[in-house]
Design a protein around this nucleic acid. Structure first.
Lengths: 125, 125
DNA sequence: GGGGAATATTCCGCAAGGGGAATAATGTGA
DNA sequence: TCACATTATTCCCCTTGCGGAATATTCCCC
């Protein structure tokens, strides 16, 4: 895996926010939308970018696309993701995203994504 | 220090090569030219980019500009530089740069930069 | 098969940035 | 002050990539 490619993926704030969430487990697109509060096209395009460059894997589950970090990570990727997670811990904005992640995971509140409100939904997020 | 800024600096191969050398000590521009074998304008512009973004400091010594990593590094920068150095160890191209660095440092061969050939030169590289 | 939900893609405008040729700026030494 | 060496900047062309509106695709359910 090319290091430059990895850094190109990391040099956008939206993508860092996506990865920040993925570092805590797989997620579907509507989760990202609810937590980041960004338009669908923006999220979808950045996830596509990460996917094309091998930083993220995707799998369809009925209506929803589940995104996750790759099961096998090249050494460079693994090292940089660990470093990233370490750096993000100190940033307020990213911590707020993680709080919303917890809320969304737990309950069925107002900003709960569609997939978990559907009866019988199998979203792995 | 903004993480996105850091990653923007890291997502170009020439800049990674510059940092790879700087991780082993300060250098002047003609060293970079001799080792990387890239045109002067390219090197100067990328050094300027790194400098504007705080990844590098510069100091004039008579005719030569000495570049070095910042003395005080924000946590995010320090972590990423360490991670970078770790990742670069396994890359052939970057290792070759380091070999040329050693040669240039040591002797007065054909690809020895101008600054160390001058009698009385004070290039800190 | 039709409708609707979730997600992806296309199209456009725009700004950032890389490469190189030419030129400018800064310092040295005679 | 002049010639020269080192380094920085400007100008131009070109590619990449971001954002958003609109549209397309894919899947489920009735």
């Amino acid at each position: 895996m090319d290091l430059v490619r990895i850094y190109q993926c990391l040099c956008d704030r939206t993508r860092l926010r996506l990865l920040n969430l993925l570092l805590h487990g797989p997620l579907c697109v509507c989760h990202f939308q609810a937590i980041l509060r960004e338009p669908q096209v923006k999220i979808s395009k950045h996830l596509g970018y990460l996917r094309r460059n091998g930083l993220v894997e995707a799998e369809r589950q009925s209506n929803w696309m589940i995104y996750r970090l790759p099961a096998k990570q090249a050494p460079g990727l693994k090292a940089n993701l660990a470093c990233l997670q370490d750096c993000l811990r100190e940033d307020r904005g990213f911590r707020e995203d993680l709080e919303r992640l917890r809320k969304v995971r737990g309950g069925l509140g107002a900003d709960c994504p569609t997939c978990v409100r559907k009866p019988g939904a199998v979203c792995a997020g």
